[in-house]
Write a protein that binds this DNA or RNA. Structure first.
Length: 727
DNA sequence: AATGCTACAGTACTT
DNA sequence: CTGTAGCATT
């Protein structure tokens, strides 16, 4: 490819960012403005026009998906492999450095990574070993405390504990660290903290500073304190740093991300040149100006106004549903409409604030026989059966991995219960040894009951004999032996129903996922595989090319785009979420809404419900304040007005943004069912009074769903039911 | 030791 | 309403 047409594909601002000669760059890239494009072209441009080698580049992202994407696109652009370039997530890159320098980092060579689940478990153990009340010191909150400190770069001894509460937390932190080190384990935050400490070694630091002359960071608004430090460390006098981000899309403050890092960057690197990418290539101008108006309500902004040269497109649809069933019905009808209009299923996304909202939508999609896929949820490597199998493998590599030991010592059940395990724990704690070592000495002393002694001996033998296979078998062969000889397969076969079957299939899937041939030893392959399993737990499931409706939370939608986007549940009490109001995070909620809206390319459909069942109770919510922040003339209010209150009747401070009464019109989820409508109160001869919730079918086959005051929710065939309208 | 039951909690989530 | 963790029961 010629250098020229390579740059021709860029707009002036993008080109300025790609070809900048300044040492440090801050690129404020609005949604859909070609952020990744700039990052990729910048790297390609550096490699093409300067003497830089891929080896000199360090590119950092938050997800593996983004990292893979960047590498792939650079290789496409350059038509060459860039193997030696380091592209990865903060955690995977830190991990790589720790593996390379495990001795300097004072880690065992075969250290393993704790996932979030295992970490909470280990924190629980620490709480228990200090004999603290688990009600008061919940493992979850203590884990948050520990991670919070690590992410601020603080070790226990650096914590100022003046009050008794903090003193206790600090104590648990210390205990946790002791256990963690004993077991040769490293948690996610530890990867970064340990790496920051590792790079304090002057020799290493100067080595990497001279190697990575160019550092590029994606999604900079999402970096936390330790990640910022980590990047900063690479910046010697000659190094160049480019950060790309969008303060309006910062939605992870709740997990420690610091938008302030953007301002901090400008202070720490005063020579940094700022470039704004404001031309949007994704959305219609209607969607864009709605999003712009919404986000303008935030005070804490660096300021940026997205524009597009594209067409204005359709108005944004707004549907006021009677309840969540009506909402789901509307969404599915509208989906069908768009499918008929020629959109593929995978071009349509349904977004919501909280995961619980997906259920009703899913039920209706199943009923309508529309294939869908829910993003998020349990990941492959987080499934119980997979973690069991991996724990066996971990124990084969490292006998001191008590976390793995505890997980599988009695899975499948082999007669080693709490009693026996308690003895081992006491032994281990008393002598400062691992559970495995405690088991060995206990076996030797013959102090257990015969039954426990035999059971433990058999477990000991099992692990020893599997370990021998490490040297003689490939990883898939070894793993197959593990799940069979341990009895895991048998154990899950016993589990009744589809669940057990699914677990077996997952275990077989695991064997397929294992690397087969390599020059390395099985031990090395296994070590790498186990780390990757924890660091890349998400990717594995991505079945590309599935043509499904995409369901996900607003958070999960970040970075994606779809021709047709639904945002459901725009209600006070749900979105913005009340939890965020307490903590004064309204601006972050608004940014989340902004992120959701800017995912849409052609069509945006917003819905809210007047009544919503949450936690088994009915809630009457008013429409989200975010709806009022969208200019009325961009909205097309479709609703079955008969039983809903116009939003304009709500008390609002922004009277200029009231919805008009004029543009309402009948819509798809036609609410009339043979003279009845959803939301209507009716009387049934036998069941008494109730409210119509939903309906399905047509003509004489129509069935309607009614919630009766006394009898609960029932489906009735309209043909055979006598109903009296009460409203 | 395994199963069944009750009580309880219930924003967002990648690594 | 739903899923889960811990407890009680056999």
């Amino acid at each position: 490819m010629e250098k020229d047409d390579f740059l021709d594909a860029l707009n002036p601002a993008q080109r300025e960012a790609v070809c900048a000669t300044q040492q440090h760059l801050l690129v404020l890239a609005g949604a859909g403005s070609g952020k990744t494009r700039v990052l990729v072209h910048r790297i390609a441009w550096l490699l093409k026009t300067t003497p830089l080698h891929p080896y000199n580049i360090l590119a950092v992202t938050f997800t593996n998906k983004a990292a893979n994407e960047i590498r792939k696109r650079i290789e496409n652009l350059l038509k060459a492999s860039v193997q030696s370039m380091w592209v990865g997530t903060f955690h995977s890159l830190a991990h790589r450095l720790l593996r390379l320098h495990w001795q300097e980092a004072q880690l065992p060579q075969n250290f393993q990574i704790l996932d979030a689940d295992d970490q909470v478990r280990l924190v629980r153990r620490s709480i228990q070993s200090l004999q603290l009340d688990e009600e008061r010191w919940t493992p979850r909150s203590v884990t948050n405390f520990i991670n919070g400190k690590k992410e601020s770069g603080l070790r226990p001894n650096q914590i100022q504990a003046h009050d008794p509460h903090t003193k206790t937390l600090k104590q648990v932190y210390e205990t946790y660290e002791t256990l963690r080190k004993q077991r040769g384990l490293v948690d996610f935050s530890e990867l970064l903290l340990a790496c920051v400490e590792l790079l304090k070694n002057p020799n290493l630091l100067s080595h990497y500073q001279s190697r990575f002359t160019h550092v590029l960071v994606d999604e900079f608004q999402d970096t936390n304190t330790i990640q910022y430090h980590w990047i900063q460390q690479f910046m010697g006098a000659q190094n160049s740093l480019m950060t790309v981000g969008d303060d309006d899309q910062s939605i992870y403050g709740w997990r420690g991300a610091k938008v302030e890092n953007i301002q901090r960057f400008s202070q720490d690197f005063p020579s940094a040149h700022t470039i704004r990418l404001e031309q949007n290539y994704r959305s219609t101008s209607t969607i864009l100006s709605a999003a712009n108006t919404l986000i303008a309500n935030n005070d804490q902004r660096l300021g940026k106004n997205l524009w597009t040269a594209g067409e204005s497109g359709e108005k944004i649809s707004l549907y006021a549903a009677f309840n969540e069933l009506d909402e789901a019905n509307f969404v599915i009808e509208k989906i069908k409409q768009n499918l008929r209009a020629g959109y593929d299923r995978k071009q349509i996304a349904v977004l919501y604030r909280s995961n619980a909202q997906s259920r009703v939508l899913e039920e209706n999609l199943i009923q309508a026989a529309v294939p869908y896929r829910v993003y998020g949820g349990l990941r492959f490597f987080e499934r119980a059966e997979i973690k069991d199998a991996l724990s066996y493998l971990r124990l084969l590599l490292n006998r001191n991995d008590d976390t793995a030991f505890e997980r599988i010592i009695n899975v499948p059940t082999r007669g080693i219960g709490e009693q026996t395990l308690g003895i081992l724990r006491d032994q281990a704690k008393l002598n400062q040894i691992s559970l495995w070592q405690a088991m060995l000495s206990t076996l030797k002393s013959q102090s257990l009951t015969t039954r426990a002694q035999t059971a433990l001996e058999r477990f000991h033998l099992l692990i020893e004999s599997l370990t021998e296979l490490l040297n003689s078998r490939s990883l898939p062969e070894l793993t197959s032996a593990v799940i069979h000889q341990s009895g895991l397969i048998e154990h899950y076969q016993k589990e009744k129903g589809e669940k057990g079957q699914a677990r077996i299939e997952n275990l077989e899937e695991l064997i397929n996922a294992l690397p087969v041939a390599s020059n390395e030893t099985t031990v090395q392959i296994l070590t790498d595989f186990l780390s990757n399993a924890v660091l890349e737990s998400g990717e594995y499931e991505a079945k590309a090319g599935d043509d499904c409706i995409q369901l996900m939370t607003l958070h999960a939608a970040k970075g994606l785009e779809f021709p047709v986007v639904f945002i459901c549940g725009l209600e006070e009490g749900l979105f913005p979420h009340p939890m965020s109001l307490n903590e004064g995070n309204l601006e972050e909620e608004r940014r989340l809404c902004y992120v959701g809206m800017t995912r849409a390319m052609k069509k945006l459909i917003l819905t809210y419900s007047e009544i919503r069942r949450m936690h088994g109770q009915e809630h009457h919510h008013s429409p989200s304040r975010f709806l009022r922040e969208i200019p009325t003339d961009l909205l097309d209010e479709v609703r079955p007005a008969k039983f809903t209150f116009p939003i304009s009747m709500q008390k609002t401070e922004h009277s200029k943004n009231n919805f008009s009464h004029f543009n309402k019109k009948p819509e798809v989820a036609a609410v009339k069912i043979a003279g009845f409508h959803i939301g209507q109160t009716v009387r049934h001869a036998k069941f008494g009074e109730g409210v119509i919730l939903n309906y399905e079918g047509q003509g004489p086959q129509t069935r309607i769903q009614i919630r009766f005051k006394k009898e609960g929710i029932k489906w009735l065939s309209l043909e055979f039911t006598q109903l009296i309208a009460l409203t």
